[in-house]
Simulated scan of single mutants.
Amino acid sequence: MTDRAQSTTVGFVVIFGTVLVMVGLVSVSGFAALEDVRDEERVTNGVRSFEVLATNVDDVAIEGVPSRTTTVKLDGVSLSVGPSVTFEVRVPADGFRKTVETRPLVLDAKSGTRVVYANGAVLREDRAGQVMARPPRPLVTADYARLHLVRTRPVAATSVGGQTTASVRTTANGTTVASTGTAGETVYLNVTSPRHEAWGRSLDSHPQMSCAPVGGETVSCVLTTDETTVSVTDVDVRLGD
């Protein structure tokens, strides 16, 4: 009887321990899956907010609206002004060269995924690679190219974070325009960015452009046209909460 009781007790302990381990594993994996879902939701909301931001900056830089304010729900992610992205336009036939450094806005999720706004484009970057969620909009035909570069630059704070809703106020601060005009001229557009792969794929999809990496973080695009206009608009960016 004693041996049987001990066997029953041992069996109960083993089964109960197994149940606890399984419950623990399910709980851990369940919480991990839930956190993954939450991270993906944060990133999706970030992409949508940055698409609205891009539209608002277009209003300021292109449509002549004095300023716009965009709200971005952070929910534990951080919003900051990132390192410079460089755009260079060269037209050798006319001796023209214009280089613009712009400071992108970066939404950094806990998972390491980033959503980035730079010069009209919204990009998403994670461990799987880089994608262009909202492409830039160069106006290029065989007859003319209209390249509008937006130089965003921070005013005051360069980052905000926490469980809050941030505001991004963008204000126009002047536009310069330069034009060239040589029939059949070759135009080079170089982009230097940590996300140059996404830039290259997006610009190369344009029927008038051909793009290829040229080393480091730079992609170079070539197009042929008869007239090129390059507009550069300075946009001040003020972050707040």
Rank of each mutant, 00 (worst) to 15 (best):
S7I: 09
V10P: 05
G11N: 10
F12R: 13
V14D: 10
L20T: 14
V23T: 15
V23I: 15
G24H: 12
L25M: 13
V28Y: 14
A32V: 12
V37S: 13
N45L: 12
F50P: 08
T55D: 15
V60F: 13
V65M: 04
S80T: 14
G82V: 15
P92G: 01
L107M: 14
A109R: 05
R114S: 15
V116G: 01
A118W: 10
L123I: 05
D126R: 04
D126I: 03
R127C: 00
P138C: 04
L139N: 12
V150Y: 07
V150Q: 10
V150W: 09
T158L: 02
Q163K: 08
Q163V: 06
S167F: 12
R169C: 00
T171W: 11
V177E: 09
V177T: 13
V177C: 01
T182M: 00
T182L: 01
T186C: 08
T186A: 13
V187M: 15
S193E: 09
P194N: 01
A198K: 13
W199A: 01
L203A: 06
H206M: 02
P207K: 11
Q208Y: 11
P213R: 05
D226F: 03
T228W: 02
T229M: 10
V230K: 06
V230S: 01
V232H: 01
V235D: 05
